[in-house]
Design a protein around this nucleic acid. Structure first.
Lengths: 187, 187
DNA sequence: TTTTAAATAGACCGAACGGTCCAGAAGATC
DNA sequence: GATCTTCTGGACCGTTCGGTCTATTTAAAA
Protein backbone atom coordinates (compact mmCIF):
# COMPACT_ATOMS: atom_id res chain seq x y z
CA UNK A 1 0.00 0.00 0.00
CA UNK A 2 1.34 3.40 -0.99
CA UNK A 3 2.53 5.15 2.12
CA UNK A 4 2.39 8.93 2.26
CA UNK A 5 4.39 10.85 4.84
CA UNK A 6 2.96 14.03 6.36
CA UNK A 7 4.31 16.66 8.68
CA UNK A 8 2.20 17.74 11.59
CA UNK A 9 1.84 21.26 10.17
CA UNK A 10 0.44 19.72 6.97
CA UNK A 11 -1.97 17.67 9.05
CA UNK A 12 -3.16 20.77 10.91
CA UNK A 13 -3.81 22.68 7.70
CA UNK A 14 -5.59 19.77 6.03
CA UNK A 15 -7.83 18.97 8.98
CA UNK A 16 -8.58 22.68 9.46
CA UNK A 17 -10.04 22.82 5.98
CA UNK A 18 -12.35 19.89 6.76
CA UNK A 19 -13.59 21.56 9.95
CA UNK A 20 -14.17 24.72 7.95
CA UNK A 21 -16.23 22.84 5.37
CA UNK A 22 -18.23 20.64 7.73
CA UNK A 23 -18.15 22.27 11.15
CA UNK A 24 -16.97 20.55 14.31
CA UNK A 25 -19.79 18.01 14.63
CA UNK A 26 -20.14 17.48 10.91
CA UNK A 27 -16.47 16.59 10.54
CA UNK A 28 -16.55 12.88 11.34
CA UNK A 29 -13.31 10.92 11.54
CA UNK A 30 -14.23 9.03 8.40
CA UNK A 31 -14.80 12.30 6.51
CA UNK A 32 -11.53 13.68 7.85
CA UNK A 33 -9.59 10.60 6.73
CA UNK A 34 -11.36 10.61 3.37
CA UNK A 35 -10.77 14.31 2.62
CA UNK A 36 -7.25 14.62 4.00
CA UNK A 37 -5.94 11.19 2.93
CA UNK A 38 -4.52 10.91 6.43
CA UNK A 39 -5.21 7.51 7.97
CA UNK A 40 -6.60 7.16 11.47
CA UNK A 41 -3.20 5.94 12.59
CA UNK A 42 -1.57 9.16 11.45
CA UNK A 43 -4.28 11.36 12.86
CA UNK A 44 -4.18 9.78 16.30
CA UNK A 45 -0.39 9.80 16.19
CA UNK A 46 -0.41 13.58 15.71
CA UNK A 47 -3.47 14.20 17.85
CA UNK A 48 -3.81 11.56 20.58
CA UNK A 49 -6.68 13.59 22.01
CA UNK A 50 -8.81 13.07 18.91
CA UNK A 51 -11.12 15.66 17.40
CA UNK A 52 -10.99 17.93 20.43
CA UNK A 53 -7.19 18.18 20.25
CA UNK A 54 -7.31 18.68 16.48
CA UNK A 55 -9.67 21.61 16.86
CA UNK A 56 -7.66 23.08 19.74
CA UNK A 57 -4.37 22.93 17.82
CA UNK A 58 -6.00 24.28 14.67
CA UNK A 59 -7.31 27.27 16.58
CA UNK A 60 -3.91 27.85 18.16
CA UNK A 61 -2.38 27.67 14.69
CA UNK A 62 -4.87 30.18 13.30
CA UNK A 63 -4.28 32.44 16.28
CA UNK A 64 -0.53 32.36 15.78
CA UNK A 65 -0.91 33.12 12.08
CA UNK A 66 -3.15 36.11 12.76
CA UNK A 67 -0.80 37.30 15.51
CA UNK A 68 2.18 37.51 13.16
CA UNK A 69 0.35 38.55 9.98
CA UNK A 70 -2.22 40.98 11.32
CA UNK A 71 -2.16 41.79 15.02
CA UNK A 72 1.60 42.32 15.15
CA UNK A 73 1.71 44.78 12.23
CA UNK A 74 -1.36 46.60 13.57
CA UNK A 75 0.38 47.05 16.91
CA UNK A 76 3.87 47.94 15.70
CA UNK A 77 3.88 49.35 12.19
CA UNK A 78 2.64 52.68 10.90
CA UNK A 79 -1.10 52.51 11.62
CA UNK A 80 -2.50 53.60 8.27
CA UNK A 81 -0.24 51.27 6.30
CA UNK A 82 -0.93 48.38 8.68
CA UNK A 83 -4.69 48.86 8.38
CA UNK A 84 -4.43 49.02 4.59
CA UNK A 85 -2.51 45.76 4.64
CA UNK A 86 -5.09 44.22 6.97
CA UNK A 87 -7.78 44.49 4.30
CA UNK A 88 -5.58 42.69 1.79
CA UNK A 89 -4.56 40.01 4.27
CA UNK A 90 -8.20 39.49 5.25
CA UNK A 91 -9.34 39.20 1.63
CA UNK A 92 -6.68 36.66 0.78
CA UNK A 93 -7.03 34.66 4.00
CA UNK A 94 -10.79 34.21 3.51
CA UNK A 95 -10.31 33.70 -0.23
CA UNK A 96 -12.61 36.59 -1.12
CA UNK A 97 -15.37 35.09 1.01
CA UNK A 98 -15.24 31.55 -0.33
CA UNK A 99 -13.58 30.32 2.87
CA UNK A 100 -15.45 30.71 6.15
CA UNK A 101 -14.04 31.79 9.50
CA UNK A 102 -13.63 28.55 11.44
CA UNK A 103 -13.66 30.35 14.77
CA UNK A 104 -16.76 32.33 13.86
CA UNK A 105 -18.50 29.12 12.82
CA UNK A 106 -17.53 27.42 16.08
CA UNK A 107 -18.95 30.40 17.98
CA UNK A 108 -22.47 29.89 16.63
CA UNK A 109 -23.33 26.50 18.09
CA UNK A 110 -22.43 24.72 21.34
CA UNK A 111 -18.98 23.97 19.97
CA UNK A 112 -18.33 27.40 21.47
CA UNK A 113 -18.60 25.91 24.94
CA UNK A 114 -15.70 23.55 24.24
CA UNK A 115 -13.28 26.36 23.37
CA UNK A 116 -14.60 29.54 24.97
CA UNK A 117 -11.20 31.07 25.73
CA UNK A 118 -9.75 30.51 22.25
CA UNK A 119 -12.84 31.96 20.58
CA UNK A 120 -13.05 35.00 22.82
CA UNK A 121 -9.32 35.58 22.57
CA UNK A 122 -9.26 35.54 18.79
CA UNK A 123 -11.97 38.16 18.37
CA UNK A 124 -10.87 40.23 21.32
CA UNK A 125 -7.31 40.48 20.03
CA UNK A 126 -8.43 41.37 16.54
CA UNK A 127 -10.67 44.18 17.77
CA UNK A 128 -8.06 45.43 20.23
CA UNK A 129 -5.25 45.40 17.66
CA UNK A 130 -7.32 47.28 15.11
CA UNK A 131 -8.62 49.72 17.72
CA UNK A 132 -5.03 50.34 18.83
CA UNK A 133 -3.94 51.18 15.30
CA UNK A 134 -6.95 53.49 14.86
CA UNK A 135 -6.12 55.22 18.11
CA UNK A 136 -2.61 55.80 16.86
CA UNK A 137 -4.03 57.60 13.83
CA UNK A 138 -5.44 60.14 16.28
CA UNK A 139 -8.93 58.81 16.95
CA UNK A 140 -10.32 58.88 20.49
CA UNK A 141 -10.22 55.47 22.17
CA UNK A 142 -13.97 54.96 22.30
CA UNK A 143 -14.46 55.82 18.63
CA UNK A 144 -11.55 53.57 17.66
CA UNK A 145 -13.01 50.66 19.61
CA UNK A 146 -16.44 51.13 18.05
CA UNK A 147 -15.00 51.25 14.53
CA UNK A 148 -12.86 48.18 15.14
CA UNK A 149 -15.89 46.27 16.37
CA UNK A 150 -17.86 47.45 13.35
CA UNK A 151 -15.13 46.18 11.03
CA UNK A 152 -14.93 42.71 12.59
CA UNK A 153 -18.72 42.45 12.62
CA UNK A 154 -18.80 43.43 8.96
CA UNK A 155 -16.21 40.81 8.04
CA UNK A 156 -18.08 38.03 9.83
CA UNK A 157 -21.44 39.09 8.44
CA UNK A 158 -20.07 39.31 4.93
CA UNK A 159 -18.70 35.78 5.19
CA UNK A 160 -22.12 34.51 6.23
CA UNK A 161 -24.01 36.37 3.51
CA UNK A 162 -21.48 35.53 0.82
CA UNK A 163 -21.88 31.82 1.49
CA UNK A 164 -25.63 32.04 1.96
CA UNK A 165 -26.14 33.69 -1.42
CA UNK A 166 -23.20 32.00 -3.13
CA UNK A 167 -22.17 35.47 -4.26
CA UNK A 168 -18.42 35.96 -4.67
CA UNK A 169 -18.67 39.73 -4.96
CA UNK A 170 -20.12 40.46 -1.51
CA UNK A 171 -16.98 39.99 0.52
CA UNK A 172 -14.76 42.27 -1.52
CA UNK A 173 -17.49 44.90 -1.72
CA UNK A 174 -17.93 44.83 2.06
CA UNK A 175 -14.19 45.09 2.74
CA UNK A 176 -14.02 48.11 0.43
CA UNK A 177 -16.93 49.75 2.24
CA UNK A 178 -15.43 49.11 5.67
CA UNK A 179 -12.11 50.48 4.48
CA UNK A 180 -13.79 53.68 3.33
CA UNK A 181 -15.66 54.01 6.62
CA UNK A 182 -12.49 53.68 8.68
CA UNK A 183 -10.57 56.06 6.45
CA UNK A 184 -13.33 58.64 6.64
CA UNK A 185 -13.25 58.47 10.43
CA UNK A 186 -9.47 58.48 10.87
CA UNK A 187 -8.82 61.23 8.39
CA UNK B 1 -45.73 6.59 31.50
CA UNK B 2 -46.93 10.18 31.37
CA UNK B 3 -48.10 10.91 27.89
CA UNK B 4 -47.70 14.45 26.61
CA UNK B 5 -49.60 15.64 23.57
CA UNK B 6 -47.98 18.10 21.17
CA UNK B 7 -49.18 20.00 18.16
CA UNK B 8 -47.01 20.00 15.10
CA UNK B 9 -46.42 23.74 15.39
CA UNK B 10 -45.09 23.15 18.91
CA UNK B 11 -42.84 20.41 17.58
CA UNK B 12 -41.46 22.71 14.88
CA UNK B 13 -40.64 25.45 17.39
CA UNK B 14 -39.06 23.07 19.88
CA UNK B 15 -36.92 21.26 17.32
CA UNK B 16 -35.90 24.59 15.78
CA UNK B 17 -34.41 25.66 19.08
CA UNK B 18 -32.31 22.49 19.22
CA UNK B 19 -31.00 23.05 15.70
CA UNK B 20 -30.17 26.61 16.67
CA UNK B 21 -28.22 25.45 19.71
CA UNK B 22 -26.41 22.52 18.13
CA UNK B 23 -26.41 23.06 14.38
CA UNK B 24 -27.75 20.55 11.87
CA UNK B 25 -25.11 17.87 12.36
CA UNK B 26 -24.75 18.44 16.07
CA UNK B 27 -28.47 17.96 16.64
CA UNK B 28 -28.66 14.19 16.99
CA UNK B 29 -32.02 12.48 17.34
CA UNK B 30 -31.22 11.57 20.93
CA UNK B 31 -30.40 15.21 21.76
CA UNK B 32 -33.57 16.33 20.02
CA UNK B 33 -35.71 13.88 21.98
CA UNK B 34 -33.92 14.79 25.23
CA UNK B 35 -34.26 18.56 24.82
CA UNK B 36 -37.76 18.69 23.36
CA UNK B 37 -39.27 15.81 25.40
CA UNK B 38 -40.74 14.60 22.12
CA UNK B 39 -40.29 10.86 21.69
CA UNK B 40 -38.96 9.38 18.48
CA UNK B 41 -42.46 8.11 17.76
CA UNK B 42 -43.86 11.63 17.84
CA UNK B 43 -41.02 13.10 15.86
CA UNK B 44 -41.27 10.56 13.06
CA UNK B 45 -45.04 10.87 13.12
CA UNK B 46 -44.78 14.61 12.44
CA UNK B 47 -41.69 14.36 10.23
CA UNK B 48 -41.56 11.02 8.41
CA UNK B 49 -38.57 12.31 6.48
CA UNK B 50 -36.45 12.61 9.63
CA UNK B 51 -33.97 15.36 10.31
CA UNK B 52 -33.96 16.63 6.75
CA UNK B 53 -37.72 17.18 6.80
CA UNK B 54 -37.54 18.78 10.24
CA UNK B 55 -34.99 21.29 9.04
CA UNK B 56 -36.92 21.98 5.84
CA UNK B 57 -40.19 22.62 7.67
CA UNK B 58 -38.44 24.74 10.29
CA UNK B 59 -36.93 26.92 7.58
CA UNK B 60 -40.31 27.24 5.87
CA UNK B 61 -41.83 28.20 9.22
CA UNK B 62 -39.15 30.84 9.81
CA UNK B 63 -39.62 32.13 6.31
CA UNK B 64 -43.36 32.46 6.76
CA UNK B 65 -42.88 34.26 10.07
CA UNK B 66 -40.46 36.75 8.55
CA UNK B 67 -42.75 37.23 5.56
CA UNK B 68 -45.67 38.33 7.71
CA UNK B 69 -43.76 40.13 10.46
CA UNK B 70 -41.05 41.87 8.47
CA UNK B 71 -41.10 41.55 4.70
CA UNK B 72 -44.82 42.29 4.39
CA UNK B 73 -44.74 45.50 6.45
CA UNK B 74 -41.58 46.61 4.65
CA UNK B 75 -43.31 46.18 1.32
CA UNK B 76 -46.71 47.62 2.18
CA UNK B 77 -46.59 50.01 5.11
CA UNK B 78 -45.10 53.49 5.36
CA UNK B 79 -41.40 52.85 4.74
CA UNK B 80 -39.88 54.80 7.62
CA UNK B 81 -42.27 53.32 10.17
CA UNK B 82 -41.81 49.82 8.77
CA UNK B 83 -38.02 50.11 8.95
CA UNK B 84 -38.23 51.40 12.52
CA UNK B 85 -40.37 48.41 13.44
CA UNK B 86 -37.93 46.08 11.68
CA UNK B 87 -35.20 46.94 14.19
CA UNK B 88 -37.49 46.14 17.11
CA UNK B 89 -38.70 42.91 15.52
CA UNK B 90 -35.12 41.87 14.78
CA UNK B 91 -33.97 42.60 18.33
CA UNK B 92 -36.78 40.63 19.88
CA UNK B 93 -36.58 37.73 17.40
CA UNK B 94 -32.87 37.20 18.03
CA UNK B 95 -33.34 37.87 21.74
CA UNK B 96 -30.84 40.72 21.76
CA UNK B 97 -28.20 38.47 20.22
CA UNK B 98 -28.56 35.50 22.55
CA UNK B 99 -30.33 33.51 19.85
CA UNK B 100 -28.49 32.78 16.62
CA UNK B 101 -29.85 32.88 13.08
CA UNK B 102 -30.51 29.26 12.19
CA UNK B 103 -30.38 29.96 8.48
CA UNK B 104 -27.15 31.91 8.78
CA UNK B 105 -25.62 29.05 10.76
CA UNK B 106 -26.73 26.52 8.14
CA UNK B 107 -25.12 28.69 5.46
CA UNK B 108 -21.64 28.37 6.94
CA UNK B 109 -21.03 24.64 6.57
CA UNK B 110 -22.07 22.06 3.99
CA UNK B 111 -25.56 21.99 5.49
CA UNK B 112 -25.99 24.84 3.01
CA UNK B 113 -25.85 22.36 0.15
CA UNK B 114 -28.89 20.51 1.51
CA UNK B 115 -31.10 23.62 1.46
CA UNK B 116 -29.59 26.08 -1.01
CA UNK B 117 -32.89 27.54 -2.23
CA UNK B 118 -34.34 28.14 1.24
CA UNK B 119 -31.14 29.81 2.44
CA UNK B 120 -30.76 32.03 -0.60
CA UNK B 121 -34.44 32.91 -0.59
CA UNK B 122 -34.47 33.99 3.04
CA UNK B 123 -31.58 36.44 2.68
CA UNK B 124 -32.57 37.60 -0.75
CA UNK B 125 -36.09 38.46 0.36
CA UNK B 126 -34.87 40.27 3.45
CA UNK B 127 -32.46 42.42 1.46
CA UNK B 128 -35.02 43.06 -1.29
CA UNK B 129 -37.80 43.99 1.13
CA UNK B 130 -35.58 46.41 3.02
CA UNK B 131 -34.14 47.86 -0.18
CA UNK B 132 -37.68 48.36 -1.45
CA UNK B 133 -38.69 50.30 1.66
CA UNK B 134 -35.54 52.41 1.43
CA UNK B 135 -36.29 53.14 -2.21
CA UNK B 136 -39.73 54.32 -1.21
CA UNK B 137 -38.16 56.82 1.17
CA UNK B 138 -36.61 58.43 -1.91
CA UNK B 139 -33.22 56.72 -2.11
CA UNK B 140 -31.88 55.65 -5.51
CA UNK B 141 -32.22 51.92 -6.08
CA UNK B 142 -28.52 51.14 -6.04
CA UNK B 143 -27.93 53.00 -2.79
CA UNK B 144 -30.96 51.35 -1.22
CA UNK B 145 -29.72 47.91 -2.21
CA UNK B 146 -26.26 48.58 -0.82
CA UNK B 147 -27.65 49.85 2.48
CA UNK B 148 -29.99 46.88 2.81
CA UNK B 149 -27.12 44.50 2.21
CA UNK B 150 -25.04 46.38 4.77
CA UNK B 151 -27.83 46.05 7.33
CA UNK B 152 -28.28 42.30 6.88
CA UNK B 153 -24.51 41.78 6.96
CA UNK B 154 -24.31 43.81 10.16
CA UNK B 155 -27.07 41.77 11.80
CA UNK B 156 -25.40 38.45 10.93
CA UNK B 157 -21.97 39.64 11.97
CA UNK B 158 -23.27 41.01 15.25
CA UNK B 159 -24.90 37.65 16.04
CA UNK B 160 -21.58 35.90 15.47
CA UNK B 161 -19.54 38.37 17.52
CA UNK B 162 -22.09 38.54 20.33
CA UNK B 163 -21.95 34.78 20.80
CA UNK B 164 -18.19 34.59 20.32
CA UNK B 165 -17.55 37.15 23.05
CA UNK B 166 -20.56 36.25 25.16
CA UNK B 167 -21.36 39.96 25.20
CA UNK B 168 -25.07 40.79 25.41
CA UNK B 169 -24.55 44.46 24.56
CA UNK B 170 -23.08 44.01 21.07
CA UNK B 171 -26.28 43.17 19.23
CA UNK B 172 -28.32 46.10 20.49
CA UNK B 173 -25.41 48.48 19.92
CA UNK B 174 -25.04 47.25 16.34
CA UNK B 175 -28.75 47.54 15.56
CA UNK B 176 -28.69 51.13 16.87
CA UNK B 177 -25.69 51.95 14.69
CA UNK B 178 -27.27 50.43 11.58
CA UNK B 179 -30.48 52.29 12.28
CA UNK B 180 -28.57 55.57 12.46
CA UNK B 181 -26.72 54.78 9.23
CA UNK B 182 -29.92 54.07 7.33
CA UNK B 183 -31.67 57.13 8.72
CA UNK B 184 -28.73 59.33 7.80
CA UNK B 185 -28.87 58.07 4.24
CA UNK B 186 -32.64 58.19 3.78
CA UNK B 187 -33.04 61.58 5.36
C1' DT C 1 -70.98 4.14 24.28
C1' DT C 2 -68.56 2.09 20.78
C1' DT C 3 -65.65 2.66 17.11
C1' DT C 4 -62.03 4.73 14.69
C1' DA C 5 -58.09 7.42 13.84
C1' DA C 6 -54.25 10.06 15.54
C1' DA C 7 -50.46 10.38 18.48
C1' DT C 8 -46.93 8.59 21.85
C1' DA C 9 -43.27 5.79 24.16
C1' DG C 10 -39.52 3.31 23.65
C1' DA C 11 -37.43 -1.33 22.21
C1' DC C 12 -35.02 -2.47 18.44
C1' DC C 13 -32.12 -2.44 13.92
C1' DG C 14 -28.08 -2.07 10.81
C1' DA C 15 -24.80 1.52 9.80
C1' DA C 16 -21.62 4.93 11.11
C1' DC C 17 -19.47 6.97 14.95
C1' DG C 18 -14.98 8.17 17.74
C1' DG C 19 -11.29 5.81 19.30
C1' DT C 20 -7.69 1.71 20.07
C1' DC C 21 -4.36 -1.23 18.55
C1' DC C 22 -0.65 -3.39 16.12
C1' DA C 23 1.96 -5.16 12.14
C1' DG C 24 4.99 -3.34 9.28
C1' DA C 25 7.15 0.40 6.24
C1' DA C 26 10.27 4.38 6.10
C1' DG C 27 13.81 7.29 7.94
C1' DA C 28 17.29 8.28 11.23
C1' DT C 29 21.31 6.83 14.06
C1' DC C 30 25.10 4.21 14.75
C1' DG D 1 23.68 -2.57 7.07
C1' DA D 2 21.84 -3.41 11.61
C1' DT D 3 19.17 -1.17 14.91
C1' DC D 4 15.85 1.87 16.55
C1' DT D 5 12.37 5.24 16.41
C1' DT D 6 8.77 7.40 14.03
C1' DC D 7 4.96 7.13 11.26
C1' DT D 8 1.23 4.79 8.57
C1' DG D 9 -2.69 1.75 7.19
C1' DG D 10 -6.50 -0.37 8.44
C1' DA D 11 -8.83 -4.13 11.18
C1' DC D 12 -11.30 -3.93 15.07
C1' DC D 13 -14.11 -2.36 19.36
C1' DG D 14 -17.96 -0.61 22.06
C1' DT D 15 -21.13 3.25 21.55
C1' DT D 16 -24.17 6.23 19.34
C1' DC D 17 -26.21 7.32 15.12
C1' DG D 18 -30.64 7.97 12.17
C1' DG D 19 -34.50 5.48 11.42
C1' DT D 20 -38.36 1.56 11.95
C1' DC D 21 -41.91 -0.64 14.22
C1' DT D 22 -45.55 -1.92 17.42
C1' DA D 23 -48.21 -1.85 21.56
C1' DT D 24 -50.78 1.35 23.81
C1' DT D 25 -53.07 5.61 25.04
C1' DT D 26 -55.86 9.48 23.95
C1' DA D 27 -59.00 12.27 21.33
C1' DA D 28 -62.61 12.55 17.85
C1' DA D 29 -66.50 10.66 15.34
C1' DA D 30 -70.52 7.87 15.10
Amino acid sequence: MARIVFEKSDAIALVAEVFRELGYEGASMSEITARTKLSKGSLYHFFPGGKEQMAAEIMAHIDAWFATEMFGPLEKEAPRAAIARMWETTDSYFRSGRRVCLIGAFALDETRDRFPAAIRGYFHRWIDALAGALTRTGLPGAAAKALAEEAVIGIQGALTLARALGDDTIFGRTLARLKRTLEAASG
